[in-house]
Amino acid sequence: MNKVRIGSIGLGRLGDRHAENIAEKIPNAELIALCDVDADKLKRKAESLRVPHLFTDFDEMLECDDVDAVVIASPSGLHTEQIEKALEKGKHVFSEKPLGITVEQCKKAEEAVAHHPDRVFMLGFMRRFDPSYQYAKQKVDAGEIGKPILFRAYSQDPEKQIAGSIAFAAHSGGAFLDMAVHDIDLARWFLKSEPENVYAVGGCYAHEEFARYGDGDNVSCLMKFQNGAMGFLFAGRTAPHGYHIETEIVGTKGVLRIGSVPQKNIVEILDSHGVRRECCEDFLERFQNAYISEINEFADCILHNRKPEVTVYDGRRVVEIAGSCKQSFETGKLVEIQQG
C-alpha cells in the first residue's frame, strides 16, 4: 500500500476541511469516498475534489472495498456507533472529538478499539499537532521550565458566531465538553497527571438561551491534579475581538505562553483606530496546519503499522473529566473526579 484510501463522513465546517486536506494536502492518502446525508452538498463537494464514490448512508460506504480507512466528522452523538461499525468492517478509524457525548458511549468505543488491535484508531486532538504546542511540549519535557505547577487555558469563540452556538447548544453536551475538551487534553498532556477534583463556576452573562440546557455562555473551573499541579480553564462564547485560544504553563523555573495575544499573522495595522493586529476568524484558520498534520500522522501510522500517541483512552478520560466539570457547574459543589 503506497497510499491510504480514505472515506470521510460529514461535510460540516470541519468535515469539509478534512475532505479538502485529504484530497489535496496529504501526500500519503487519497480521498476515495465521501458520505453525507445532504445529497446536493455531497455531489458538489465530490465533483470539486474528484472523489469517485459517493454515499448518503455510512453503512453503504463501509461496504466499499476501495476504502481502507474512515475519517469521522459527523455529529458528536454518532461517533461511537460509527467507530464500532467501521472497526467491525476492518477499517482503520480517525474520529473527531469528542469520542462520545457520554462516558457509557466512550467505554463502548474503548471496547471496540480493544477488540481490533490490528486496526489503527486515532482521535482528533489536533492541538497536539500544532507547531507551537509541540515546541512548548518539547521544552516542558526537557525540563526547561522546571516542574510544571500550573496549566491555564482560555478558549473563546467570537460573539459574532453566537447564533451557531445557540443553535447547537441542545446537542453540544455543554461548554466543557464542546469547547474545553482540547484544554483538558492539553492539561493532561503537559502536566503528565490526572485531575483529582474540580470546582466550576460561570453563567449566562449575555445569552440566557444556554440556561435551558444547564449551560452557560462563559464558564470556568479550577482543578487539582494528582501530582499537586493546578489547572484553570475558561471557556467563553462571547469574545468581542475574535477567536482566542491562549495557553500558559507555569513551572518552577520558567513560564511558557502560547497565543497570549491572538493574531492572524505578524502584520500590524496602523489606521484611524490606532495600532492593532487582526485575530483569526475561527478554529479552522488558527489550526489549519495542525489539521493537516494529524491526518498525515493517521495515514503514516497505517502505512508503517504503528499506533498513534493519541488513544481512545485519552478520549474517554477527557469526556469523564468534562462531565465532572459540568456536574460541578450545575451543582455549585466541588466534585471528585473518578479515576481509572
Rank of each mutant, 00 (worst) to 15 (best):
I269Q: 14
K264V: 02
Y243I: 09
L284W: 07
L256R: 01
L284P: 09
V267E: 01
I249G: 03
E278Y: 15
V267D: 04
R257I: 12
R257C: 06
V261G: 12
G251Y: 04
D282R: 06
C279E: 05
D271L: 06
L284E: 15
T252P: 08
V250L: 10
E285M: 00
R286L: 11
Q288H: 09
H244K: 06
D282C: 01
R277H: 15
E248N: 08
G251P: 13
S272R: 12
A290M: 05
I249K: 00
I258F: 09
V275Q: 09
I269F: 04
D271C: 12
A290K: 01
I245N: 09
D282T: 15
I245V: 01
R286T: 12
V275L: 11
E268V: 10
N265I: 00
R277A: 14
H241G: 02
D282N: 02
F287I: 01
R277D: 06
R257D: 00
A290N: 00
Y243F: 08
E281A: 13
R257E: 13
E268C: 15
K264W: 04
S272E: 14
F287P: 04
K264Q: 15
G251E: 05
S260Y: 14
V250F: 04
V275H: 09
L270A: 02
Y243H: 14
G254W: 06
G251M: 06
H273L: 14
V255P: 13
T252H: 01
K253A: 01
V261A: 07
G251C: 07
V267H: 08
G274Y: 11
T247C: 12
Y243W: 04
L284S: 10
G251W: 02
P262C: 05
F283M: 12
L270G: 07
G259F: 10
V261L: 08
G254H: 11
F287R: 00
Q263H: 13
H273T: 15
R257H: 15
N265T: 00
I258R: 11
R277T: 06
V255F: 02
L270W: 11
V267I: 02
Q263I: 10
I249C: 00
E246D: 05
R286F: 13
A290C: 03
A290I: 03
E246S: 11
I269L: 11
I266W: 14
G259W: 14
N289A: 03
N289F: 06
N289K: 03
G274K: 07
